[in-house]
Write a protein that binds this DNA or RNA. Sequence first.
DNA 1: CATCGATTATTGAGAATATCAATGATTGAT
DNA 2: ATCAATCATTGATATTCTCAATAATCGATG
Lengths: 144, 144
Amino acid sequence: MAANGGIADDVGFLLSRASGVVARSVNKALAPLGLRVRSYSVLLFACEWTPGITQRQLASVMGLDPSQIVALVDDLEQRDLVTRMPDPADRRNKLITATDEGYQLRDEALRRVEDAHASHFEHLSPAQLDDLRRMLHQIVFADE
Amino acid sequence: MAANGGIADDVGFLLSRASGVVARSVNKALAPLGLRVRSYSVLLFACEWTPGITQRQLASVMGLDPSQIVALVDDLEQRDLVTRMPDPADRRNKLITATDEGYQLRDEALRRVEDAHASHFEHLSPAQLDDLRRMLHQIVFADE
DNA sequence: CATCGATTATTGAGAATATCAATGATTGAT
DNA sequence: ATCAATCATTGATATTCTCAATAATCGATG
């Protein structure tokens, strides 16, 4: 349990390790809904942004290549969970918006993800989780 | 900057996001050495464990499927950075051990990774990084 | 208005990673 | 001597990453 300064205590290594553990768990929790952690994230952004979020914004906030967003939105759109409409103000942009079914599926997905998270974060206090969030935020947006 | 409780402040999402940012940066830093973050980790474990680490142990500590370890060790072995020898005490196990060249490459890799990490972690104090390490450790080994 | 550079979504290709099932070699216990 | 378990390995399939190229659209400039 004691840190020994080796690779096993490297923050980068632990980040990758923790991320993998949680993502695997979340993927399992979402599998019955036909979602994975990525499509789940897209769905949630679509739910939260009104009147919609562009694919470019999705790529930026999720740290992915824009081409990956295409496939994720394709899937959600085919299942009528989101719509993809050209932005009237700038028709290069496609506005991704959640449908009613999208919002419904999100509710169920949120519950499942919350359960999955609980098993991993139960040993951390709310204050610790706040600190963790803040630090991760710093790492992601270190250059802003 | 303020947390709004949306997916962008989800700890799981931020973990994946931060892990991605750091891994991408480390991969770039290691590319000139012909290493990626995974092979780098294997090399370091091989350097740190004496008289060697088994592939099962590698799979367990790195959170990967054993079959992935095979490919990683294959690569390092072909470049004479590690050796793969049956454990005399139990010949099912293969002991992975770093060669002199392996140790040399590790030294250079450590420098590069340290530089890469610095740009991401510079806003965090040593105490904060300790806290972060501890919390990530809790998440990874929540069930032990 | 016509043109040009920049931006967006999209497609496609190739590498890397994840996940799972099956196999042969080896072990320890029966 | 046999049997179940463990290890490394191979192979198959799906997912993800990374990059380059393209068509549509925009804003600005002449």
